[in-house]
Design a protein around this nucleic acid. Structure first.
Lengths: 340, 340
DNA sequence: TCCGCCGAATGAGTCGTTTCAAGACCACCA
DNA sequence: TGGTGGTCTTGAAACGACTCATTCGGCGGA
């Protein structure tokens, strides 16, 4: 494979000049530039990124380490981050820790070897060892979908309490007075926050706390939702609406209702959370709370680039909190409450 | 950041010895090794991948360029490829061309700059310019989910004709004698092959060709499926079963049936294709034809590594064709045909 | 003719690692 | 004592591009 020296020799100039043709064309005379360009084309010369990096001391790559590549949410985060990085001439390397602390640690050391510009991540390791490793070797990072522990670190997250308020508020506005909240394992902060938001919405509307019936699912997947839906069906005065902490739970509930021939939304309104791609594809398109995933990715990348840009003036570590958005579809639009 | 020279100085040995401690520990005496290791730990030394690459002339990274990161199929391909590459000590860089030939071309030149070990890709550019670029600069590649044009190239693909046979054969075995096939735009080879498989299954069962009613959707998404489902509902003797070229189409049909209160599977059986993650999460869990996505990724990576391994002995370019698998769920299991 | 200036081109030095021929040291045997 | 073999260690030469102080050549003005 042709190197810069081959180009220089064939064009009859020095390597320095070839380098200038590529990186600072204004320093080179018109005709020299044309001649060198021609040789570059002819030889199919491609510069070696590793040599550039070695010289520059750091790479032009930002790492993005997500919890689950299969989750459309993170795919959107990746898209947002990629776009922002591209505009700044940086590449994004997307990696998947699959919620495994050991894979996460593997990737972190890979990143260190690669001398990446910085890391955007949602940590999988609850002990925080991952972040310590980054801090130790001085790799800049931005937390995604988590709030930073202290003011010396950047993070971008979403306001889950408000998300819960949006969902429950919508159901209340549609006339529902008895609402179930299907949450997953209560140790997940996100689930707790969404429930808290729902309670706040009830209180704000002047409804008694008993109007919200909390059902705890033993997971955050479709099967758990199906189980919870079955339990819901067994209740004597059945709630007229259900708010699920997650779209998968909502899809599970929908399955249970279909099997029991309970009409959605007329006999039971459903609101999910996350607005995953298939929320709109469900048998009854699902009303859901959308997280601004692409914006998170973009902001995270921008914070990182601000921190690592040459212009050292004034990067303040920030903890950005974004607001979710309610996407209304058929599953919460029963005809009757509007009629009353 | 500490370099190998700092380690050497502090440990009182030469850089060569430090390198040996890291890469060929058996050449170094026990006590020297321990001393050097201690210094490495203390200084937090991390070797620079770019310097290694520069020396080695090529990187330890395999690129995977997929059509659509949002598609669970490709996520599985990525997982398979990643696992195989990991075992061989290589990293995988997953990139998303989003079906755009220009983005694809951008990535190809990025890969060239990075001197990647090889590329696994599903080309987005129908003109084949992408592959020419790879051939020109001698980057080894393996086609994924496409059949190679000639015997001088590797590919891993899936037998779509057989997939169509499996789907239609299943419906025939369940007693259906009038089946609709909802295909997407006919210029897609995959769609044509799946339809051809379905026709072959009918012929094999001795049914007349009219038993298969072909409906062409103007897309491969849920909306197109909903439209096709509406058209299906308008038919006078309505088929008792439908085979969709894609799970998204099938979900769209399911939506249309739910809205029209046509029972699935009792009044209409549905079979999809791809077995995407949400096939099982649909209101009626969807029978579907699963593509061995992870196996494709693994095999593609293995073919590439065989080609690029130092052991030059006998890599024959191969075109591997894998077989799909039918996953039966509720959407095709009506009670009645079994009873007859 | 000499000086100074300017744009253009040069080429040596540098980045951090791996590799490899050569050297140092020791033990053993003849 | 000299030779031989073996184990460790060394130091210098790559790898390919970028940078920057230096040089070159030409030109105008004194």
């Amino acid at each position: 494979m042709a190197g810069i020296k081959d180009v220089a020799r064939q064009a009859g100039v020095s390597v320095g000049t070839v380098s200038n043709v590529i990186n600072r064309p204004d320093l080179v005379s018109e005709q020299t530039r044309a001649r060198v360009q021609a040789v570059i084309e002819r030889l199919g010369y491609v510069r070696s990124e590793s040599a550039r990096q070695l010289r520059a001391g750091r790479s032009r790559i930002v790492a993005l380490l997500v919890l689950d590549m299969g989750n459309p949410f993170f795919v959107d985060v990746a898209r947002g981050a990629e776009r922002a990085a591209r505009q700044a001439g940086l590449g994004v390397m997307v990696c998947n820790s699959a919620r495994s602390p050991s894979e996460e640690a593997d990737y972190i050391s890979l990143f260190a070897e690669q001398r990446v510009r910085g890391v955007l991540l949602t940590p999988a390791d609850p002990t925080g060892r991952t972040l310590d490793a980054l801090r130790r070797n001085g790799t800049p990072f931005v937390l995604v979908d988590r709030v930073a522990a202290g003011p010396a670190e950047c993070s971008v997250s979403v306001d889950d309490v408000n998300g819960g308020m949006l969902a429950a508020g919508h159901l209340i506005a549609r006339g529902h007075r008895s609402i179930a909240f299907i949450g997953g394992p209560p140790e997940l902060i996100q689930v707790r926050d969404r429930g808290a938001g729902a309670r706040a919405a009830l209180a704000e509307a002047g409804l008694p706390p008993e109007s919200l019936l909390e059902i705890s699912a033993d997971g955050m997947d479709v099967a758990a939702g199906r189980d919870a839906g079955a339990r819901l069906l067994g209740l004597a005065p059945r709630p007229t609406a259900v708010f699920c902490a997650n779209d998968l739970l909502a899809l599970g509930v929908l399955q249970a209702m279909y099997a029991a021939r309970v009409g959605v939304p007329d006999e039971l309104a459903i609101v999910g959370y996350d607005d995953i791609e298939f929320a709109a594809a469900a048998a009854v398109p699902l009303t859901s709370v959308r997280q601004p995933a692409a914006a998170m990715g973009r902001l995270a990348a921008e914070l990182l680039m601000e921190e690592t840009s040459g212009a050292d003036v004034g990067h303040r570590h920030r903890q950005v909190v974004l607001q979710p958005e309610l996407v209304v579809r058929s599953s919460s639009l029963a005809a009757w409450p509007a009629d009353r």
